[in-house]
């Protein structure tokens, strides 16, 4: 699992990347009440907004950690947005993206680097 400085995570299986927001981000947001996941088939560019996550008092854009095509969206979040709080880095995933350039992941942080990054905040 790799992380961005904007607190998205990505986990690669073959050429399919599962993406979501980190536990740190989920905790900082507080109770998540709504998630707008991307449409399947949509092409996303690394760094561009591809989903929205909302708590009662905040709405945050979620940026794509990798470029590619959305092949699956976690529709379960529409009825159970709290999953983002309870299992942000597992069942609370947002979308699966068929990556167009796996090398993009190289620039991301691993868990240790992300933890070190969090310590600087």
């Amino acid at each position: 699992m790799k992380f961005t400085k904007d607190h998205e995570w990505v986990s690669l299986d073959g050429d399919i990347a599962t993406v979501g927001i980190s536990k740190h981000a989920a905790d900082a947001l507080g109770d998540v009440v709504f998630v707008e996941v991307p449409e399947v088939g949509k092409t996303v560019a690394k760094g561009a907004s591809f989903a929205v996550v909302e708590s009662v008092k905040a709405a945050s854009d979620v940026y794509a950690p990798v470029s590619g095509e959305v092949v699956e969206a976690n529709d379960a979040l529409s009825t159970a947005p709290e999953t983002v709080n309870s299992a942000p880095q597992a069942d609370g995933w947002f979308a699966k993206i068929k990556v167009s350039d796996a090398a993009e992941l190289d620039a991301l942080m691993d868990q240790a680097a992300y933890d070190a990054f969090l310590a600087t905040l």
Partner: peptide, 12 residues
């Protein structure tokens, strides 16, 4: 559903 509104979403 205040996240639709200006005091939270501002320019969006």
């Amino acid at each position: 559903l205040s996240t639709r509104e200006q005091h939270i979403r501002r320019d969006k």
